[in-house]
Design a protein around this nucleic acid. Structure first.
Length: 504
RNA sequence: GGCGACGUAGCCAAGUGGCAAGGCAGGGGUCUGCAAAACCCCGAUCAGCGGUUCAAAUCCGCUCGUCGCCUCCA
């Protein structure tokens, strides 16, 4: 298995150092909703973890919450609530969103505020070793004490200075020195420390937490490309300076960033689309397919059209998951597809190619089934790869919120016409059902089923005009009816909006 | 200004030296009462120019265009 390592700039053969793969992924700063850039990143690392596990590795996955920082403090002040309350709220949101996306939970979710002691221990040692110094209640890391500073992000101290957007601050020895510990201002959260009351700087919490839970050398350290500098560069410097040895991480993995239009989607630009918003209109499978359809190191542009295309692609895969078992003919041999899939994933997690294999397999399963071949085992392979590795559920999308009134209306008009056609036995059934009261969205399903039954009866008697009208109207309501040799099936969900949708 | 990435069919997107994956959309068929689904058939010489090579989307150079990081951000 080869993985592209940001540090070396090339693909390297991956082997964990011990029995378990030690994987640390930078988590969120919980002060706002998760947007789909987060979704992209965590879905990718979810697939990476899933694949490692699929390959037989035991994975220990740690992901942090940086639950104390300037933005949390500021926003909490604006809302008049304690910072911890704000952080807690968005941590819960994070879990809800990621669960909805079928992202496996990490084994440990440490939080910066619960690791203050460990953080202070690191800072103390760095000061002792001469890698950090105290300045007016702050503690700074001395970048010039770490010879390979800049190696990860491929830049030099000189180069960074040349940009000269760096503000020169008098209390620092070097402009690129960064805070390990920040003196608290009045009203801000503060913890007592040898350097006075304060709080951790950004970066140090990740070093403290990763080393505490995973040891001095990680197998994999992941995050978005926007964290490469300064966050990861600094993390690496302080961690290796602390340990007095390296590497801090054997493989650095960075995902490309999600764009909206021509720009990066980011909190600072305010061009956010939240995970929640997307899941209102699309299935989690569609979002995963959208993300996995391109390479994780490339930037990806979000458009609603792309999501809709992914939804239809998801529907295609679901179709395979739920279709028949084929016949008793020659079985479809799935191992070649499996091989190709693994080969793609082994090459730096080429999910786009792996997905192409899955689509090839889908087509061949359908074809073999049509020709009477046995596709039971082939489908098993298909489901295993799609579900376990790519984290797709392939389940029917949730019933969308349906407007009950038009469906009842449709029933009534159907009944009226049935009367005309003197199909008394149907009327009786429908009438009985209509007498129920307390109808709400959750009671819609039986009505649909009833209409389907009515329609089938009509079809049997060749009343196609009315049968088609029922189908068309249901379709407009977001309910698809498909006549198959096995009978009529009804489906609802985001993938079933009518093709020629009425003006939105 | 410094560093880096990218530019492949209508759209999205793999492919890094040897006849250009896959998805969506579109056209033509098969099946079906009709639809839907499914299956079959149909599409690009890879931003432009020059070079290396028997052979380049794939290597080198230049040009044009887009984006990212350099400040908080997955």
């Amino acid at each position: 298995m080869k993985i592209y390592n940001t540090l070396s700039g090339q693909k390297e053969e991956f082997q964990p150092q011990g029995d378990a793969v030690k994987m640390y992924v930078c988590g969120v700063t919980p002060y706002d909703e998760c947007h789909i850039g987060h979704a992209m990143s965590y879905v990718l690392f979810d697939v990476i973890r899933r694949y490692l596990e699929f390959r037989g590795y035991q994975v220990k996955h740690v992901q942090n919450f940086t639950d104390i920082d300037d933005k949390i403090i500021l926003r909490a002040q604006n809302q008049g609530i304690p910072p911890q309350e704000l952080a807690e709220r968005y941590i819960q949101r994070y879990f809800e969103d990621m669960d909805a996306l079928n992202v496996r939970r990490a084994h440990i979710y440490p939080r910066a505020t619960q690791e203050i002691e460990e953080i202070q221990r690191l800072v103390s040692v760095l000061v002792q070793k001469g890698h950090a110094y105290v300045s007016g209640g702050d503690v700074y890391f001395r970048v010039r004490s770490f010879p390979t500073y800049g190696q990860l992000s491929k830049r030099t101290l000189e180069g960074m200075m040349a940009g000269s957007r760096v503000e020169v601050e008098v209390e620092k020895e070097h402009p690129m020195d960064f805070a390990l510990w920040k003196k608290s201002r009045p009203g801000e959260p503060a913890w007592p420390s040898p350097w006075g009351p304060g709080r951790p700087g950004w970066h140090i919490e990740c070093s403290a937490m990763s080393m505490k839970y995973l040891g001095a050398t990680l197998d994999i350290h992941g995050g978005g490309q926007d964290l490469l500098f300064p966050h990861h560069e600094n993390e690496r410097a302080q961690s290796e300076a602390f340990a007095g040895a390296g590497p801090f991480a054997r493989f650095w993995i960075h995902n490309g960033l999600l764009r909206l239009g021509q720009e990066k989607m980011s909190k600072s630009l305010g061009n956010l689309i939240t995970v929640r918003e997307v899941l209102e209109h699309h299935s989690a499978d569609a979002l995963r397919l959208f993300v996995l359809g391109s390479h994780y190191r490339s930037p990806l542009s979000y458009t609603s059209e792309a999501l809709e295309a992914a939804e239809r692609a998801a529907e295609r895969l679901r179709q395979v998951a739920r279709s028949g078992k084929g016949g008793a003919g020659a079985p479809l041999e799935a191992s070649p597809y499996r091989e190709r899939f693994l080969q793609a994933m082994d090459d730096d997690f080429n999910t786009a190619q792996a997905l192409a294999v899955l689509f090839d397999l889908s087509r061949d399963i359908n074809r073999a089934a049509e020709e009477g071949g046995n596709v039971v085992l082939a489908r098993q392979t298909f489901l295993e790869l799609a579900r376990e590795v790519l984290g797709l559920t392939l389940e029917e999308p949730e019933m969308p919120p349906l407007n009950v009134a038009p469906i009842i209306e449709l029933q009534k008009s159907t009944i009226a016409r049935l009367r005309r056609d003197k199909l008394d036995w149907v009327i009786e059934q429908v009438g009985t059902l209509l007498n129920q009261d307390g109808v709400d969205v959750n009671d819609v399903r039986p009505y649909i089923n009833l209409l389907r039954e009515v329609r089938n009866a009509l079809r049997k008697d060749k009343h196609f005009e009315l049968a088609d009208e029922i189908r068309t109207k249901l379709s407009e309501l977001g309910v698809a009816l498909e006549d198959t040799p096995q009978g009529t099936v009804g489906r609802t969900g985001p993938g079933h909006r009518p093709k020629a949708a009425p003006p939105k």
